[in-house]
């Protein structure tokens, strides 16, 4: 179909591409997301392994940014405790729109192995911030997180930028 095939595959004819501006902008946004450098617990080690050369997260166009003001999305990797929950909310509020959240690992999805007797564990980060993609696992394999990233890219491609928002 029009724009995407022409952009992703090399085209012989050259010249004119037909497509919507929205598609072009979404394609650019989805493939150059910058993430907030933020690791909480064990999942952060798998996340670091994904950044290293074997799994290579940077080929998705992502770069780690230390400040939330410069980031597009946030990967919550690890257990969210009540003491940390307020700080995560502050970090999320500091990010500029459009922003996304990937919840990585069992603890960030629903409290993980600490769901039953954890008096200090927040059972799922979606109790405080809206989550776009959930990646299950304890910890998830780096390939699983890369699939989560691809699902986020799909979600960004299907976002409506112009026109009346529902």
């Amino acid at each position: 179909m029009g724009l995407l095939n022409r952009l992703d595959d090399p085209y012989e004819t050259g010249g004119v591409i037909l497509g919507t501006v929205e598609d072009l902008l979404n394609w650019g946004r989805g493939r150059s997301d910058w993430y907030l450098h933020f690791g909480l617990a064990c999942c952060a080690i798998e996340f670091m392994a994904m950044n290293a050369s074997h799994f290579d997260f940077m080929r998705f166009g992502t770069i780690p940014r230390p400040s939330p003001r410069q980031a597009d999305f946030m990967i919550v990797s690890g257990t969210v405790t009540l003491k940390m929950a307020e700080r995560i909310k502050k970090l999320y509020d500091q990010m500029a729109e459009p922003k996304y959240v990937i919840s990585m690992g069992s603890c960030a999805n629903c409290g993980g192995p600490y769901w039953e007797h954890g008096y200090h564990v927040l059972k799922g980060v979606d109790r405080i911030i809206p989550v776009d993609v959930y990646v299950p696992g304890c910890p998830p394999r780096p390939e699983a997180l890369e699939e989560g990233m691809m699902k986020l890219q799909e979600k960004i491609m299907n976002q409506k930028l112009f026109g009346k928002k529902k």
């Binding site: 257990t79 003491k83 008096y119």
Partner: peptide, 14 residues
């Protein structure tokens, strides 16, 4: 510290 206090000792008793 305490930002990752996951109540390990309470779980170990259960």
């Amino acid at each position: 510290i305490g930002y990752l206090h996951r109540c390990f000792e309470k779980h170990a008793e259960a």
